[in-house]
Amino acid sequence: MVMSVLRRLGQTLFVLFGISVLVFLVFFATPGADPTARIAGRNASPETMARVRVEYGFDRPLPVQYARMMEKLFVTRDLTSYVNRGQKVVPEILEAAPVTVSLVSGAALIWVVLSVAMGVTAAALRGGWVDRGLMMLGLVGISIPVFWLGQVVNLVTQSRYHDSWLFSWVPGLGYVPLTEDPLGWFRALALPWLTLAVLFVGIYSRVLRADLVAVQSEDFMRTARAKGLSPMRVLLVHGLRTSMITFVSLFGLDFAQLVGGGALLTEVVFGLQGVGRLTYQALSNLDLPLIMATVMYSAVFVVIANAVVDMLYLFLDPRVRDGR
């Protein structure tokens, strides 16, 4: 058990190293583009160019350049943006991260609770109108584009009905840090959470229902019923627990990609300065250091989330525990 955890950690570090090398090569070692000129800016004097070249090691071999870049990214953290002169990239991301993490965590909590409730209810009442209704609802949730839903929510709660008793509590767009004002944080994020969660509630409840229905035909479910357990207990204790394995792996990936910047549309619509929005800005300005930093940041999250999911597997599925 300890051994397999350690091995998984080793793999994680190796994957992160590989990603960092790839990202570095793509952005800074592409033939024909001189990173020095980009960093030094337009019309830079030869002295500035020379200084930048030495500072980033662009006159040295590639491995040294790579080491310099990683040093600037992780150790000294003074990698600066191409576009906003003097703007340090790493603190910018560290500032945006809590916004995204707040948004995604809240939404994740909502979508997990709702989709488990919907999936289990639908599977328990399989074939009935409740089942059909819930699954139809899920399909609608999957089909609604999040930017459109966000705009409609804003239209209703910010302007059209903002003064009615129902939505007068909704604050203006933007983020309120949790440490400053917990209630304000909650109010500012409640609607973005729901909006972001809609798509995932749809996907997860449908996936879970399908899994639960598939598991019904397993031999062990028949054994559980032959033991004289109640249908609810059979479904939850034996069925849901076994179906959770797919659910968790799906969740790990979605959560990671959202924290890594995938919640871009929600962030833009609700005026949240999160990582997704930062990535978007970096991409539209071709701000290479910022792109590099955000890509590394999101890679770290995806890889870590994968590792966490694998650990959860060890906990959820005893067969995996022995398989290593």
Binding site: E218, D219, F220, R222, T223, A224, A226, H238, R241, T242, L316, D317, P318, R319
Partner: peptide, 15 residues
């Protein structure tokens, strides 16, 4: 009570 043909699959694997 009932016992089933295939003991490989008749127990819930996670308990």
């Amino acid at each position: 009570a009932m016992i089933f043909q295939d003991p490989m699959t008749a127990f819930t694997p996670v308990y």
